[in-house]
Nucleic acid binder design. Structure first.
Length: 275
DNA sequence: CGGACAACCTGGCGGC
DNA sequence: TGCCGCCAGGTTGTCC
């Protein structure tokens, strides 16, 4: 659920409360939430490290400490927020990792389904691995996208979900980008025309940018660090709209499964490219 | 290399 | 009202 716009919103919301702070201690009640290192070592290493910056790479949150970096992936139900030590937040029934700050506030990691992971590493590359380009970076130009997709042949839906192809898209924004560019999720990358690629590139940037402006889509679990919902869920065109009329042509939106993922599209105006 | 699929988890919901 | 069973999806890992 938390995809690039949601993670970006979380990062922006954490910058102010974490600025200038130092982590003094860490506690964890579910060892599985810690990717690396294990609990005792993690706690010993992180204590005393100051926060230098809060950044995002794909769907990863990078809290750069000194000398290590805290890397958090929210997966489906993860939440990250800063509250006073004594605060009782509604998400606290799922809090598994708590970082004590030096100002009587805490950074809490809540995760109902326990899929999310928190890592502490010297070099972020240890965790990030082979991530694709950032779709909203200036360096990610139409030409760069054209060159990248020219080397692929598979179906568009799984391709756009592949984080080594492009970092940050998830099930919601992939479906939205394909609808916006009028491309069928089962179309193959090697059948796209030059114009198809141009529209897809523009659609990816557009849906992600709008998602950020709306502070993310709170389809179910996602919340901003202040606990409130984003508003991108109100303007989705296909995701979660099976059976409802297409906003463009009124034909009912269809839901199929592609690569084990629920996939929403308009069978009337999202065409499969010839070939 | 790519496609298929299980595993990781549990809240929420539909069905009865 | 209560219980059962299934679905949701990001990523990794395994198998063919």
């Amino acid at each position: 659920m938390p995809e690039l716009p949601e993670v970006e919103t979380v990062v922006r919301g954490l910058r102010a409360p974490l600025a200038g702070r130092t982590i003094t201690a860490m506690t964890c009640d579910w060892p599985g939430s810690l990717a690396t290192p294990d609990g005792p070592l993690f706690a010993a290493l992180v204590a005393g490290q100051p926060v230098r910056s809060v950044d995002r790479r794909g769907k990863y949150i990078l809290i750069r400490l000194d000398p290590d970096t805290l890397i958090i992936h929210l997966k489906m139900t993860g939440r990250l927020y800063v509250v006073p030590d004594a605060a009782q937040d509604h998400a606290d029934r799922w809090v598994h990792v708590t970082f004590q700050l030096d100002n009587a506030y805490q950074l809490r990691f809540s995760d109902a389904r326990k899929f999310g992971r928190v890592a502490l590493v010297r070099d972020p590359a240890e965790v990030l691995g082979d991530l694709g380009p950032e779709p909203l970076d200036d360096a990610f130009t139409l030409d760069a996208f054209r060159e990248r997709i020219a080397r692929r042949a598979g179906q568009l839906k799984p391709l756009l979900l592949n984080q080594t192809f492009l970092a940050g898209m998830g099930n919601i924004y992939v479906d939205e980008a394909l609808w916006t560019s009028r491309l069928h999720p089962l179309s193959r990358a090697d059948t796209l025309s030059g114009d198809d690629v141009t529209r897809l590139y523009a659609a990816i940037r557009q849906v992600l940018s709008e998602g950020i402006v709306r502070e993310g889509a709170s389809v179910n679990w996602y919340r901003k660090p202040d606990g409130t919902k984003g508003s991108a869920q109100y303007t989705l065109s296909v995701y979660g709209r099976a059976g409802q009329p297409c906003r463009r042509c009124r034909h009912p939106i269809e839901r199929i499964v592609v690569g084990q993922r629920g996939t929403h599209f308009c069978p009337a105006c999202q065409t499969r490219s010839p070939g």
